[in-house]
Design a protein around this nucleic acid. Structure first.
Lengths: 126, 126
DNA sequence: CACCCCGGTACCCGCAACGAAACCGGCGCT
DNA sequence: AGCGCCGGTTTCGTTGCGGGTACCGGGGTG
């Protein structure tokens, strides 16, 4: 698989302002990273550069418990661990796509409303 | 509007285990409560009996800031305040419906996987 | 021998969300 | 006068998620 388009999650991207969340904070992004095939632990760390190893491990463990991803460890050298979406995890891709569509269409509106409410706290000036 | 079908959110319902969330913890449920027309504060407290007044107020204020709901106060007596969905808030209904469809189809699978992983921590017995 | 890489684990902490309980102010009812 | 309702606000906890840092174990590599 030559061009594996791993998404790139910039911590400054307004994705953080998304009004919804799949599972824990990073679960949705992990699912997106695994969309096009299994990934190794460090491959996930690259696009998710805002998450520490500990939190990523916790996220993956929780997803494994919930049957969203499968964890395959190859006792090679150097050690290799691959995470892949299960059918259940894959079934969330549609939902995530719908959420991203909503964001593309409506997130600017939401952010504008928030900014307007924040910049002009009370209409009655002092 | 005689039969206003307010949803009923039992705190024991596995909705709490939903692997996604709109905004803050209660935002999604508030949107559902407002789906069929404006509601008063106490009308929202009835189906959302697990949420305290303070948290419900905070949730509604945040939704108002984000332009998801509108707040209309009638200086009558007794005082009356009505919350209604804005078009932006209404645009989230499709997404919530999709999430509920996913839950109906896949949540039992997820809960079964979680239960299996919890009941049988390690396959290797002590 | 010393060092690094991979895929973690263990421990500790801070903050924000969540929550229980009390209070409030204007009005109506009795 | 006393009580209750409506729509909150205030105060004071508590919890728990997320995060930072350090460490580990085994093999390859210089």
């Amino acid at each position: 698989m030559p061009p594996a388009p791993l998404p790139d999650f910039d911590p400054m991207c307004p994705t953080s302002a998304l009004p919804f969340q799949i599972g824990d904070k990073w679960t949705g992004m992990v699912i997106l990273c695994l969309e096009h095939g299994p990934r190794r632990f460090t491959e996930l760390q690259t696009p998710l550069r805002a998450v520490t190893a500990k939190v990523l491990t916790e996220t993956l463990r929780a997803m494994e418990r919930d049957g969203l991803v499968s964890r395959t460890s190859y006792p090679e050298n150097p050690p290799r661990v691959e995470y892949a979406l299960t059918p259940l995890g894959r079934s969330l891709l549609d939902l995530i796509a719908a959420a991203r569509t909503w964001s593309r269409e409506h997130l600017p509106t939401l952010l504008a409303a928030r900014a307007a409410a924040t910049d002009t706290p009370p209409p009655e000036a002092p």
